[in-house]
């Protein structure tokens, strides 16, 4: 496949991403361009800009525009116990290993509005591991982090969450963990008493803790391979020996520079284990 020469649009896109990185310190230049271009086109149309250059002008000079553009640039789609088979594999295959540690740290990288972290907190409570575990939820999107702290989800999403939880081998009823009020499900505050939500970028930040499990699902698909390698490198350096890395259902380390550092622990559920010797 021969790549096309750079068009005017391409030049403007490149400059827009450079401008965002320069002024707002969010660097999207290592994102997967195929889907990022699509989101930027939607943003351009949303703001009524004729070109990416106009959008760049707006974003550099109107401080209210960037947060709106930011919501186009980051993808926030998740659900509780998304891909129940993944959580079942954690429960049945990974938890027996985790039980052998006196204390545990879990990192949900790219935690969005917290769905994945609450899922893990519930699972760990069901498995009797919650009291020895500290959960880190990180994301670059401050709005998402606020939602994650709040733990409030629209009530119409609950039937799907409940079904997912049951399919994941849930040992309790999901309704034990939330209170329904005014069209919203408010999750039990005690679920996040051992959780820390914080701003952390897989693009630019460093390792911040030694952890036993990293769950980073449907985040790497938005990165190009080089940036994926950086992120997986962070996971590798964060994990204890024989620690676990869970990816999204269609993500893999097959094309990663770090593939050799991991073994395929539950290949179908995309759970990897860091090799013992480093």
């Amino acid at each position: 496949m021969t790549p096309k020469p750079e068009s005017t649009d391409d030049i403007e896109l490149r400059l827009l991403l450079e401008a965002i990185a320069g002024q707002y310190h969010y660097d999207f230049r290592g994102y997967s361009m195929a889907s990022l271009t699509r989101r930027l086109t939607q943003a351009r149309d949303h703001f009524g800009c004729r070109s990416y250059s106009r959008l760049q002008d707006l974003v550099l000079h109107d401080p209210t525009a960037f947060p709106k553009l930011f919501s186009f640039l980051t993808v926030q789609v998740s659900e509780l116990f998304r891909d129940p088979a993944y959580f079942r594999a954690l429960r049945e295959q990974v938890v027996p290993h985790l039980r052998t540690y006196p204390s545990l740290k879990v990192w949900v990288a790219g935690c969005s509005a917290g769905e994945e972290l609450y899922s893990l907190a519930i699972l760990f409570r069901e498995e009797g591991l919650e009291d020895r575990t500290l959960f880190y939820g990180t994301d670059i999107n401050p709005e998402a982090l606020k939602k994650a702290e709040a733990g409030v989800y629209e009530l119409d999403r609950i039937p799907l969450f409940t079904e997912n939880h049951q399919k994941s081998g849930g040992k309790s009823s999901l309704s034990d963990y939330y209170t329904a009020a005014y069209g919203a499900a408010v999750f039990d505050k005690t679920l996040r008493k051992r959780a820390v939500f914080s701003d952390h970028s897989l693009v630019s930040d460093a390792v911040f803790a030694e952890v036993h499990l990293v769950s980073c699902r449907n985040v790497l698909i938005y990165f190009d391979r080089e940036l994926q390698d950086r992120a997986v490198g962070l996971f590798k350096d964060s994990l204890v020996r024989k620690g676990f890395l869970g990816l999204g259902a269609k993500e893999s380390l097959r094309f990663s520079a770090h593939a050799g550092a991991f073994t395929e622990f539950a290949p179908h559920e995309r759970i990897y284990q860091l090799r013992g010797a480093r």
């Binding site: 496949m1 790549p3 096309k4 997967s32 361009m33 195929a34 889907s35 699509r38 989101r39 993808v75 789609v77 449907n218 698909i221 938005y222 190009d224 391979r225 269609k250 993500e251």
Partner: peptide
């Protein structure tokens, strides 16, 4: 998942 083809000849998936 959405399936996309990138200019680098790689497939990309998206949950948008």
């Amino acid at each position: 998942y959405h399936l996309l083809l990138g200019r680098n000849g790689e497939l990309s998936l998206s949950s948008e």
